[in-house]
Design a binder for these strands. Structure first.
Length: 426
RNA sequence: GGAGAGGUGUCCGAGCGGUCGAAGGAGCGCGCCUGGAAAGCGCGUGUACGGUAACCCCGUACCGAGGGUUCGAAUCCCUCCCUCUCCGCCA
């Protein structure tokens, strides 16, 4: 949510920056809603002030045993007026709220302007793209060869876009999560948190998934509107909702390992092979809550933490700065990390690290005290560190041998009981 | 799931339907006192929105949430949420 005051005072600049990301800000509608809101609010509050004063008189008169009937009659008509302006004010306020809730964040000044991923800017590429003296297989074939990945079984249980893992591959998947958690808690200073995988609508509003992106979510049946989390960003960031955080507790750095559930509505036909795009996947998520003014540095740091994992797993990757048109709703600036997949001969997203500045904090009323002691919105950041399923894919494809064996990178061996390679079925 | 208790400011805790943004205490801040500190004393100490460009200033709202009754609701009524205790069930 943008700062309403800034929006009012610098409407032109805001509209221009929103246009960069392809969002047409309806300034006429905003200004008419806003002026109507102001008119009704002033009117309503004046009426309330009058009513309060009159009612107070009644109280005093009554205390002195005077006749209060004439006074009551005098206030009588105030009530009706108040009811109607109050109601109109509530309607306008709701409309305005809805309008503002649908406006995305402002892109940072250094974010490249563009419509789609073709305008993303590569920042750097790390690691060498492996060359094989055989035709590398993709993870689906490799997984089958290891008897460790079964899409048909999952389809039997549930449907498309699910998978079952088995044996060493299942263990590898677990090892990756553990490794990431340990790295971030022991080396990068994050506090591990375990959170609910089901949240209510307020939490999803706070991080920006609602109201606009309900179609991407799984909603549970039942009287309470509950949703499966699409990312740990939702429950973890919302830990600070409605809080005024002590300055000296910042930065708050959380890491959480959770499943993520996405409906993938609108992705029909895309990435249908393999476990690149699943309805359920696991992710180790990094979240930082920092004072305003510290978030640019924090984004570099957090993205670096995610890259550390790729380095340790000896996976080649590159970092992109997303252009304005490719960024998510809540982001002011986003780095995507893309890992090289020999099976596709392409880089594919494995992490997305965003600075939302005060956009989410404002929606969820997460604050700290500034230098003047007054509450001010914190800044929130999040990033995958990393998506576990896709990391498994990258690991299988990059560390495969001609015979289908998989070499376990050194950093991971302690988590695999010392195992150096997973052997393909004879 | 059954029975009961309760949700008030940073915390504890009071609050006959009217003068309650809310007593009192603790904590915190500033000052006095002191060689310094403690104790003691004095003063101060919520948030949001709006009127304003603006600290002050003024108005409005907020005592779990949402409705209702009333000229007037922290106080009365209804619904919901949450917490605690006991019982039942259960990983």
């Amino acid at each position: 949510m943008l700062d309403a005051r800034v929006l009012r005072q610098e409407t032109d600049q805001v509209a221009e920056r929103l246009a960069r990301r392809g969002f047409a800000f309806d300034r006429e509608r905003f200004e008419s809603l806003e002026s109507e809101r102001k008119r009704l609010q002033v009117e309503t509050e004046a009426l309330q002030a009058r009513r309060n004063a009159e009612s107070k008189k009644i109280g005093q008169a009554k205390a002195q045993g005077e006749d209060i009937q004439p006074l009551i009659a005098a206030v009588g008509e105030l009530g009706e007026q108040l009811d109607s302006t109050k109601q109109r004010l509530a309607e306008i306020a709701d409309e305005l709220e809805e309008f503002l809730a649908g406006v995305p964040n402002l892109p940072d000044e250094d974010v490249p302007v563009g419509e789609d991923e073709s305008s993303n800017r590569e920042m750097h590429a790390v690691g060498e793209i492996p060359s094989f003296d055989f035709t590398p297989r993709d993870h689906v074939d490799l997984g089958a060869g290891l008897a460790g990945m079964d899409f048909e079984a999952a389809a039997k249980l549930t449907g498309a876009r699910f998978v079952t893992l088995a044996g060493p591959v299942a263990r590898l998947h677990r090892a990756l999560s553990q490794f990431m958690l340990d790295m971030h808690t022991e080396k990068h200073g994050y506090t591990e948190v375990q959170v609910p995988f089901i949240v209510h609508a307020d939490s999803l509003f706070g991080t920006g998934q609602l109201p606009k992106f309900a179609d991407d979510l799984f909603r549970l049946e039942g009287e309470t509107p509950w949703y499966l989390i699409p990312t740990a960003e939702v429950p973890v960031t919302n830990l600070v909702r409605d809080e005024i955080l002590d300055r000296d507790t910042l930065p708050v750095k959380y890491v959480a390992h959770t499943p993520c559930f996405r409906s993938e509505a609108g992705s029909a036909g895309r990435d249908t092979r393999g476990l690149i795009r699943q309805h359920q996947f696991e992710k180790v998520e990094l979240v930082q809550i920092v004072p305003a003014g510290d978030s640019e540095r924090a984004l570099e740091e957090l993205t670096g933490h995610a890259e550390t994992i790729l380095d340790a797993l000896e996976l080649p990757y590159r970092r992109l700065m997303l252009c304005t048109g490719d960024m998510g709703f809540s982001a002011a600036k986003t780095y995507d990390l893309e890992v090289w997949l020999p099976g596709q001969e392409k880089y594919r997203e494995i992490s997305s690290c965003s600075n939302t500045r005060d956009f989410q904090a404002r929606r969820m009323h997460a604050r700290t005290r500034g230098g003047d002691g007054k509450p001010e919105a914190v800044h929130t950041l999040n990033g995958s560190g990393l998506a576990v399923g896709r990391t498994l894919v990258a690991l299988l494809e990059n560390h495969q041998c001609a015979n289908g064996d998989i070499l376990i990178p050194k950093a991971l061996r302690p988590y695999m009981g010392g195992l150096e390679r997973i052997e393909a079925r004879a």
